[in-house]
Write a protein that binds this DNA or RNA. Sequence first.
DNA 1: AATGCGGGGCA
DNA 2: TGCCCAGCATT
Length: 349
Amino acid sequence: MKLEEIIKPLLSWYEENKRDLPWRREPTPYHVWVSEIMLQQTRVEAVKGYYERFLTALPQIEDLAACPENKLLKLWEGLGYYNRVKNMQKAAKEIVLKYGGELPADYEEILELPGIGSYTAGAISSIAYGLKKPAVDGNVLRVLSRITENGEDILKQSVKRRVEQELEAVMPADRPGAFNQSLMELGAVVCIPNGMAKCQVCPVQHLCSARAHGTVLEYPKKAAKKQRRIEEKTVLLIQNGQEYAVCRRPDKGLLAGLYEFPNMDGWLTEEEVIRAVEALKLMPLHIKNAGEAKHIFSHVEWHMKGYVVRVASTEKRAGNLLFIDKKESKGKYPIPSAFSAYRKYIEED
DNA sequence: AATGCGGGGCA
DNA sequence: TGCCCAGCATT
């Protein structure tokens, strides 16, 4: 099978079957960029709402460059991988300074921007600028590994690099964006990752080696993942009248720069919690169990026990704690989904 | 080359 | 529960 045989059937199929997605309506470089960053390791359905809200709040690259960080993270709250949006703002500032507020129409220059790797650079180059550059993501690697029955580990960088070279050599110069999207679209709706691939409706089924041999479900091959570690935490919902305590996480590492409820490593007893609160120069009045919760990240699990602690204090700050008003703070502080089980304790009554 | 980085949907 | 998702940066 020659790789270029897939081009015509894929393009025809794509024109007939492509989904109506928000970022396909007006594919300006900025729009394509925002959508591609949001779509990194994130499903289309999860992105749709965020995409519309983000562009309504920040319609131009200049708006993104000038946005305060808390507002920026708030727009991303719940989407995950928060470095994506921080890098996007860094890039926006560079674009304003160096390129007059427009993304450069050049693959290598786009690739230099923070948060943009070969996939995203290829997607922007091909979809927004019509440049002949491949956009090889997980979908593309899966589809091609099945068509060619290639048993190499698609997580290896070397495999991705070779696929990029092979595609660039054969992809159509007149419709690079449609070609790239046709491969991804096929992976998303036909040659799907979980469950049964819909080979009966596949436009390249006659070219697919795995289909011919009944081995579709054996591809793609991937190396086994490392096991997650487990962390036990005690989460405090510290209430002082109409205010509750939050603190900002460090600038590096997990959930960097987001806000959280004060918490400590390990499971503390009520007595230990009382003493910990006193150590913060707060006077505990009452403590109540807030139950257990679990949150799973890709590389770690949090097993949390929560306590509601009512305190007496006139301080706005205690240590690195920040007491914020239940009403006034509404929508201001980005708090990750890991704490969603405990939000109800600090919402308005 | 290996690891860190979120969150949710689905088999 | 485990797997995967329109990946990238850092080490």
